[in-house]
Amino acid sequence: MSPARLARVVPLILIVLTGCSSAPGTAPEDPATGTGAPGRNAVGTPSPRTPAAVGRPAAPVEVEIPSIGVKSSLMELGLNTDGTVEVPPPDKGMTAGWYTGGAAPGEAGAAVIIGHNDTRFGKAVFHDLKKITKGADIMVRNSLGESARFTVTGSESVSKDSFPTDKVYGRTRDHALRLITCDGDFDAEGHPVNNLIVYATLD
């Protein structure tokens, strides 16, 4: 790869913020993102997608995971002006969000839904996501009332310093779904050190 080409590619490999809170009594959350100090809530930035075109599948409006008692409406999440991924605001911790830069759930590609584990307001929508098991069902309903059913194929807890960006956001022919929240122990500043990623495929 030429130096000029490399210079265009490297800026795409960035770090973004996601929905995680500090431990109680530690560093306060940023009111704009619902996160603690920058740099500890990394989930890896995907390459930009072409804006949604006419004929794209209807937007998802609800996610349900019966095995862990989750049923949430979905807000749309894009990118902030600095290129970081938007997250639900802290006061909407019980609401998950769909990242509009990825696939719509049910279409070919990787669809990504992000939710808080907890916020300064308490327990949040994906608090029990760590309890999900392989084979569990995830249903996503769109604005037309159509439902897509996914089956969990696995999950992993990964360090935010080595987030598998391409594995989560990269191009795939599968009709894939990824759920992301925070996980693991807290660092010295009170921020979770890992991300929990759940992988699922369309039935």
Rank of each mutant, 00 (worst) to 15 (best):
D82E: 09
R49M: 11
S67L: 00
P11Y: 10
V63D: 08
P51R: 00
I68A: 05
I13N: 08
P38K: 06
E156F: 10
I180K: 03
S147C: 04
A104C: 12
G184V: 09
D174V: 04
G102I: 07
G145S: 12
V193Y: 01
G122L: 00
V16Y: 00
P66H: 05
A42E: 04
P31L: 15
V61I: 15
F126R: 02
V70L: 08
S155N: 05
T172Y: 10
A23L: 08
G101W: 12
D185W: 05
M94I: 06
P66T: 01
R171Y: 14
K92C: 03
A136G: 00
R178V: 11
D161Q: 08
A176V: 09
V43Y: 12
T133C: 04
G109A: 06
L14H: 14
E64M: 06
V140N: 10
S155L: 12
T84K: 00
L12A: 05
R173P: 01
P66Q: 08
V10W: 10
T153K: 09
G69H: 10
F121R: 06
V70K: 02
G36D: 05
L79V: 13
E189N: 13
P192R: 13
D203H: 14
V85R: 05
G93C: 01
A58F: 10
A124M: 04
P192Y: 12
F150R: 03
P31C: 11
S22L: 05
G97Y: 14
A103V: 01
P38N: 00
G154A: 11
V63G: 01
R56A: 15
I114V: 12
F186M: 14
V61C: 13
R5F: 13
K130Q: 11
P90F: 10
T18R: 11
G135F: 11
G102W: 11
I180C: 03
T119M: 05
F121E: 06
D128G: 00
I13L: 15
